[in-house]
Nucleic acid binder design. Structure first.
Length: 581
RNA sequence: GACCUCGUAGCUCAGUGGAUUAGAGCGCUUCCCUGCGGAGGAAGAGGUCGCGCGUUCGAAUCGCGCCGAGGUCGCCA
C-alpha cells in the first residue's frame, strides 16, 4: 500500500535523486521533532561529509535545484543550516488523506506488506483445570492485538492457544476427582471447584503418603491411554475451554488453533533424537540429554531428564518443528512473560542449530512484564491477592456501568449494558496495551479504570463525540450544500484542522511500526494523540455552525474520517468504539 | 558470579545518535459552560534524562565501567 505520506516521502527522495548532487544511498530522510516547522527533513551531515562539501552549502545547493511535480504533496522546501526541510502541501494533503480514509473505510491503515506470508502468534496459553488470572490476561490481550495488527498488515495470521493440558498435575486431578467426585457447577465456578479439589488432595497427601502413589499411578495411566483416566482428563479440558470461552468472547478473542502440550507428546522422542543426531545435544552419564552452552548468554540446559521424562523445552521444540512443517510461516511470535526470556533464547538457538527453521524466519519472544499489586507484591493464590480474569472483567464492567448510569441516563438499559461492557473491557485491555509491554505493571483499579487523559474511555469518548456530530448533521436541514457536491478540502486551513489531518495521515505508519516492533503501544499512542488532536479541533472549529456550508461539509468529512480512523485503531487494539456512551 | 530487562518531572510513561524551550497523562495552581457531548479544552509550576569516562562536528539516545530495581541460570512449567 502506498499512502499519502508514502507518496510524500517518495516524491522527496525522487526529487533529491534527480538533482544528481547526492547519491541515493546517502538520502536519509527523517521526521523532525515537533518544534521544527517541517514535516520531513534531510539532515545533510553524512552526505556532505562523503561529498566533501559543507553541510549548509549542500542543503542550499539542493534547495536551489529541487523540482517537484505540480500536484506533488510537497508544499515548501527550505534550508535551516545543514537541514533541508520539507512541508506537506496543506490542501492537497487534506484531500488525499480524507479521501483515502473515506474510500478505504474499515481497512484504512491496513497494508499488503505481509502478502503471501504467514505469521504464527502463540498467546494466552492458560492451564487446563485452572482459572485464568492476571498473567494470562496480559498474554491474551497483547497477543490478540498483535494478531489483529499482523492481519491488518496483510499477513495470514495464525493464532494458536498453546494450552497447558499435560503434565504430572493431571495425576493428582484425576485421583482427586475419583476420590471426591466431579464438581457440580458451571463455568468459572466449576473450574474453581476443581482447583479446590486439587488443593484438597495435595493437603491430604501430606498425611497419607499412599495418595501420592495413587496420583503417580493415574499420571502413568493417562500417559498410557487408559480409558478412564483419559476420560476424566478430556472432561477437564472441555470444561476449562468452555469456561475460558466466556472470557474470550467478552474480549473478542478467537483462536485458529488450540493445540495444547498434549498434542505434541508423540513427537518428543523424535525431536530428542534430532538434537542428538545433529550433535548439538549429548547424553550424559546419568542418561539425561544435555545441550551444552552455545554462548555466554545461552547456558547449558536439558532436553530430557535422567529418568527419561521430557521437559517444557522439549515440548516447545516439538511445537516449533510442527509449526514450521505445517504453516511454513515467515514469523513465529510467542507472547509469554519476561521471566521466560532465557528459555526462549535457548529454545530458538536450539531450533536453529537443528535446522528446524531457516535463518530467514523470525523467531520472536514478545516478553511482557510482571503484574504487581499496590504493595509491590507479585500476584499469587498463596498471598491471597489473586485476581481472576472473569472477576476482573466483571468488576471493570460494573464500575463502568455506574458511570454510564450517571453520565448517560437517557440511554436504554440495554444500551447502558452494551456501553458499560465496551468501556469496562476497553479499560482492562488498554491497561495492558498503552505502554511498552516489557514494563512491569501495578494492578491499580483506579488507574486502570481512569476515564481521563490517556485512557481507553477518553478514546472511546472522543469517537462518540465524532459520531454525535455526524448524527446531528444528518438531522439538521440541508444548509444549502447539495449532498453530492464535491467537498472543498481546501477550506481546511485552520491549524487545528491541519494538525489533525497530518496526524490521521500517520496511522498507516503507526500500524507498520507496531508490527515491526511487536509493540501495540505504538498504535495505542497514535490513538491517544488522535483523540487529543480531535479535542483541540473540537474546541476551536465549530462544525455544524461553521461559517459557510462548504466549510461545514469539509469539517464534517474530517470528523467522519477521524471517527473512522480512530475506530480502526481501537479495533486493532481489540477495543470497541460505541457510537454513543 | 554470569546473563536478560529496566533506570527520563512528585507518580505512571513516550522519546533511543541530530537542529535556541527533552514530550504526554495523573496529581498540584489558575482559567473556559447563553456554543457540535465538561467522560472536554486552555495556561502555569515541576526535569543536572541514575553516576562517571569515552566515541562524534553533535549523546537522554552509541561504547565501556560503576550504582540501583526486577528477573533468570541442566533434571518445574
Amino acid at each position: 500500500m502506498e499512502y499519502a505520506l508514502d507518496r510524500f516521502v517518495a516524491a522527496i527522495q525522487a526529487a533529491l535523486s534527480a538533482t544528481d548532487q547526492v547519491p541515493t544511498a546517502l538520502i536519509d530522510l527523517q521526521t523532525p521533532k515537533p518544534n521544527i516547522p517541517a514535516d520531513m527533513a534531510f539532515p545533510t551531515f553524512r552526505a556532505a561529509k562523503e561529498l566533501g562539501i559543507a553541510p549548509p552549502k549542500l542543503a542550499q545547493d539542493l534547495a536551489a535545484t529541487l523540482q517537484f511535480a505540480p500536484d506533488a504533496l510537497v508544499g515548501t522546501v527550505e534550508t535551516a543550516g545543514p537541514f533541508l526541510n520539507f512541508t506537506l502541501h496543506p490542501e492537497r494533503l487534506a484531500a488525499a488523506v480524507i479521501t483515502e480514509i473515506t474510500h478505504l473505510g474499515d481497512s484504512y491503515g491496513h497494508d499488503d506488506q505481509g502478502h503471501d506470508q504467514r505469521v504464527v502468534v502463540d498467546y494466552s496459553s492458560p492451564n487446563v483445570a485452572k482459572r485464568m488470572h492476571v498473567g494470562h490476561i496480559r498474554s491474551t490481550i497483547i497477543g490478540h492485538s498483535l494478531v489483529n495488527i499482523f492481519r491488518a498488515l496483510g499477513y495470514q495470521t495464525i493464532g494458536d492457544n498453546h494450552l497447558g493440558d499435560w503434565g504430572k498435575q493431571f495425576g493428582v486431578i484425576i485421583a482427586a476427582i475419583e476420590r471426591y467426585g466431579r464438581p457440580q457447577a458451571e463455568g468459572e465456578a466449576e473450574l474453581a471447584q476443581v482447583e479446590a479439589l486439587y488443593a484438597r488432595y495435595n493437603d491430604e497427601m501430606k498425611d497419607h503418603p499412599e495418595l501420592d502413589e495413587v496420583a503417580r499411578q493415574r499420571s502413568l495411566l493417562l500417559e498410557q491411554g487408559d480409558p478412564q483416566a483419559r476420560q476424566i482428563w478430556q472432561w477437564c479440558v472441555e470444561m476449562t475451554l468452555a469456561a475460558n470461552q466466556r472470557n474470550y468472547n467478552r474480549l473478542g478473542v478467537q483462536f485458529d488453533h488450540m493445540l495444547g502440550e498434549s498434542f505434541y507428546e508423540d513427537m518428543l522422542p523424535g525431536v530428542i533424537q534430532d538434537a542428538l543426531d545433529a550433535e548439538v545435544a549429548r547424553r550424559d552419564a546419568d542418561g539425561a540429554v544435555v545441550v551444552d552452552a552455545m554462548d555466554k548468554s545461552i547456558p547449558t540446559f536439558l532436553l530430557q531428564r535422567a529418568d527419561g521424562a521430557t521437559l517444557y523445552l522439549t515440548r516447545d521444540l516439538a511445537t516449533i518443528k510442527y509449526r514450521q512443517a505445517t504453516f511454513a510461516p515467515a514469523k513465529m511470535a510467542y507472547v509469554v512473560g519476561q521471566p521466560q526470556e532465557l528459555h526462549f533464547r535457548q529454545l530458538f538457538a536450539l531450533a536453529r542449530a537443528i535446522n528446524y527453521v531457516p535463518a530467514a524466519i523470525e523467531l520472536v519472544h514478545v516478553p511482557f512484564g510482571t503484574v504487581f499489586d499496590t504493595d509491590g507484591q507479585t500476584i499469587s493464590t498463596r498471598k491471597g491477592n489473586m485476581i481472576f480474569l472473569a472477576t476482573l472483567l466483571d468488576e471493570a464492567t460494573a464500575r463502568a456501568r455506574t458511570v454510564v448510569e450517571e453520565k448517560s441516563p437517557d440511554l436504554s438499559d440495554e444500551e447502558k449494558d452494551t456501553v458499560a461492557e465496551a468501556v469496562g473491557i476497553g479499560a482492562v485491555i488498554y491497561n495492558d496495551l498503552y505502554q511498552d509491554t516489557r514494563r512491569n505493571i501495578t494492578l491499580d483499579w483506579d488507574r486502570m479504570l481512569s476515564r481521563e487523559g490517556n485512557s481507553a474511555t477518553y478514546l472511546q469518548y472522543s469517537h462518540a463525540r465524532c459520531c454525535s456530530i455526524i448524527r446531528r448533521a444528518a438531522e439538521l436541514p440541508d444548509a444549502g450544500q447539495p449532498a453530492d457536491a464535491p467537498v472543498q478540502y481546501a477550506a481546511l486551513t485552520h491549524p487545528a484542522e491541519q494538525s489533525l489531518i497530518k496526524h490521521l495521515a500517520k496511522m498507516p505508519w503507526a500500524v507498520r511500526e507496531a508490527g515491526t516492533r511487536y509493540a501495540p503501544f505504538v498504535l495505542a499512542d497514535w490513538c491517544y494523540t488522535t483523540a487529543r488532536e480531535f479535542g483541540v479541533f473540537f474546541e476551536q472549529c465549530p462544525v455544524l455552525r461553521a461559517e459557510t456550508p462548504e466549510l461545514r461539509a469539509a469539517r464534517l468529512a474530517l470528523v467522519a474520517a477521524t471517527a473512522q480512523a480512530l475506530r480502526n485503531g481501537l479495533g486493532l487494539l481489540g477495543i470497541k468504539a460505541p457510537q454513543r456512551m
